[in-house]
Computed example of a mutant assay.
Amino acid sequence: MNRTAQGIVLLLLGAGALSSSAFSDLYLNYVQPGFRPFLIAAGAALGVLGVSVIAGEARAALRGLPGPETAPASGSRADSDDHGHGTPRVAWLLLLPVIAVFVVAPPALGSYTAENAASAPPPSSSGSDGGGDLGDLGGSAENGPVEMKIQEFIGRAWTDEKRTLEGRTVRLTGFAVANPEGEGWYLARLQMACCAADAIVNRVLITNRPEPEEDSWWRVEGTWQPPEGDLRSVRNHRFTVETMDGVENPPDPYE
């Protein structure tokens, strides 16, 4: 691969990073929102570097000077064959991930990952939260449903000994995931600390509504079904749905 081709690859990589971070929210399918400035900076740096490489080769060609790719090869004939013939064909494969960014950008993680990813573990009884008071939910039953993230709902269901969720209407948004054990289905949302590779799943079990299509997004309103006994012993917190509406995929699919 000659220097001009290398510059083109760098330029395309930079354009791909910028198109998914500076000009769209596509980057949210893979990393946390806080990474946006770094992606923009990296894309800009790659673009500038690519342009400088191409411009340098163009100036050398206009002056009639040989570029690095036309310089005499040193070493044995075997070295010449390896570097002059084998490497360029393989090096062009570097364009494949660049093309994929523009043509077939991978979607956000969904039901397949949720079925196989580790579930958020219940807090230990010795944890710093102590299973104590998490404070009031705010508002009142007369003021309508409480909007919550699924991870917040699960955390409160597991740890709030005062059971402030009981009897309150809650609104949750997530995607549908089949229950491999056959009872009902899950409304789920993936939570990531850094990037999609470390995602864990938060989910609530719904048994009073027919299972919708996997990966379809829903906004549900309903109530928590309080379990008997220790909250931390519950594997799947149950949710009784009162209303259920389909929604478009959110810009940020993770919590």
Rank of each mutant, 00 (worst) to 15 (best):
195 C>L: 08
139 G>D: 12
79 D>I: 10
2 N>Y: 01
130 G>F: 03
6 Q>M: 06
229 G>D: 04
195 C>N: 05
95 L>K: 04
158 W>T: 02
91 A>C: 12
41 A>P: 00
64 G>C: 06
26 L>T: 12
216 S>P: 11
203 R>W: 00
125 S>L: 14
106 P>S: 02
136 D>H: 12
233 S>C: 05
61 A>F: 04
186 Y>H: 03
135 G>D: 07
90 V>A: 15
221 E>G: 04
62 L>P: 00
164 T>V: 04
217 W>N: 03
94 L>S: 14
191 Q>T: 15
218 W>T: 08
21 S>P: 10
241 V>K: 01
214 E>F: 06
10 L>D: 00
250 P>Y: 05
27 Y>T: 08
236 N>I: 05
117 A>M: 09
194 C>I: 05
254 Y>K: 10
251 P>E: 13
238 R>L: 07
231 L>H: 04
54 I>W: 07
237 H>E: 03
211 E>M: 15
102 F>M: 08
72 P>N: 09
153 F>C: 04
239 F>T: 01
64 G>K: 03
54 I>V: 13
121 P>K: 06
245 D>E: 15
32 Q>H: 14
65 L>P: 02
5 A>P: 00
36 R>N: 06
119 S>V: 11
11 L>E: 02
47 G>N: 05
85 H>R: 15
8 I>L: 15
74 S>W: 11
166 E>C: 03
2 N>G: 14
240 T>A: 13
93 L>A: 14
212 P>D: 04
54 I>T: 01
80 S>M: 09
121 P>D: 01
106 P>D: 04
182 G>R: 07
147 E>R: 13
160 D>H: 02
115 E>D: 10
111 S>C: 03
156 R>T: 07
144 G>E: 11
69 E>Q: 11
49 L>C: 14
68 P>Q: 06
125 S>I: 13
135 G>C: 04
